[in-house]
């Protein structure tokens, strides 16, 4: 009996070794552990084992059985692994085939730019406010130091509905509205559509402007410089530089034009910036104290600065778009590019 057990111990190894598939493994299992199997047959002989030998033989039986079961289990695992590997080898897709489902659309380039600018301004503590596009002459001109006879305004530039109601020519119109209702200190930014009566490759009768206004006790031209510098760096990259040039707007004094280093050539000079290295992008300045006083803010106590620029133009610089008209044509083939 002992001999037979030892023989089984040896045979199971060989038997499992030669197995190639699950069917053969099942046969091996039956051959050893089945009702008529070798191990079962041996176990039947336990009755004849003398008492004194039983503990030893019993232990041996258990050992052999465990070995047989272990060997079979191991093989089974091995075969499972093989089978899975085979299967995975066959299951394969062409990963370059197109995706299924609704394809993404795109935001309009001007809105993308607006969103970008709003994020920058909101992070700096600005509140986004808006005003009407059809505006009174009072807010659009008069309240921002541009009375009727002022040379800075020209009937030809505005679209009028009546003598006193027009399509706003500048988001500056919202400055006076804000000053009437907000209590300083405040920082506001006004994005929106504006309108002027001219139309060519670089002028659209409708365009988008952004106006910023800061009113507080101790703000200066230097704050304006640092703030615009931060904004332009966030917009066009950390190496962006800005510079001031004197200019004139009725609502600011001193007034400046702000040039931004060309985002394409970084100031080296290229076609976009006409070799100057800089692009004229913003108008800005210290709020004219007349405007503050006119709108009920004490200019002896408060100062302010303001800036404004064309969102469309910023978007064009950002994307290398050279024709303003393409922005309002809305050809899907054009819009698709900003997906």
């Amino acid at each position: 009996m002992e001999e037979e057990l030892l023989k089984i111990k040896q045979e199971i190894g060989e038997a499992v070794e030669s197995v190639e598939n699950k069917k053969q493994l099942a046969d091996v299992k039956v051959a050893f552990l089945g009702k008529a199997g070798k191990l079962t047959a041996v176990l039947k002989g336990m009755r004849d084992v003398p008492n004194e030998d039983r503990p030893r033989i019993g232990a041996l039986v258990n050992e052999v059985r465990a070995l047989v079961e272990e060997k079979i289990f191991q093989k089974e695992e091995e075969l499972n692994q093989q089978e899975l590997a085979e299967k995975l080898k066959c299951e394969k897709v062409d990963i370059t085939m197109p995706s299924v489902g609704i394809k993404k659309g795109a935001l309009h380039p001007v809105t993308s730019m607006t969103d970008r600018l709003m994020d920058i301004c909101v992070n700096l503590g600005f509140s986004i406010i808006e005003g009407p596009e059809i505006e009174s002459d009072y807010y659009n001109f008069e309240a921002v130091n541009t009375p009727k006879s002022h040379p800075a305004r020209d009937m030809q530039d505005s679209f009028y509905f009546t003598d006193n109601i027009l399509l706003r020519t500048q988001t500056t119109a919202v400055q006076a509205r804000a000053m009437e209702t907000l209590k300083p200190p405040f920082k506001i930014v006004v994005p929106g559509k504006t309108y002027r009566n001219d139309s060519d490759a670089t002028h659209s009768p409708m365009f988008n402007q952004l106006e910023g206004l800061v009113v507080d006790e101790n703000v200066s031209m230097a704050d304006l410089k640092i703030m615009l510098s931060v904004m332009m760096k966030r917009l066009f990259g950390q190496d962006t530089l800005i510079r001031f040039r004197p200019s004139y707007f009725p609502f600011t004094e001193p007034s400046i034009e702000v040039d931004v280093s060309c985002p394409q050539c970084h100031g080296q000079g290229c076609k976009l910036c006409k070799n100057s290295g800089y692009l004229e992008l913003l108008g800005a300045g210290v709020v004219n104290p007349k405007v503050l006083d006119f709108n009920g803010i004490d200019s002896k106590k408060y100062k302010g600065f303001a800036f404004g620029f064309g969102i469309d133009r910023a978007s064009m610089l950002f994307t290398g778009n050279t024709d303003m008209r393409s922005l309002f044509k809305n050809d899907i083939r054009f819009l698709k590019q900003s997906r």
């Binding site: 659309g105 795109a106 935001l107 309009h108 001007v110 809105t111 409708m206 809305n330």
Partner: peptide, 13 residues
């Protein structure tokens, strides 16, 4: 809407 496949447009008012 962009994720639903829409393209945003901007037109004259």
């Amino acid at each position: 809407l962009v994720n639903e496949g829409f393209y945003e447009i901007m037109t004259f008012t």
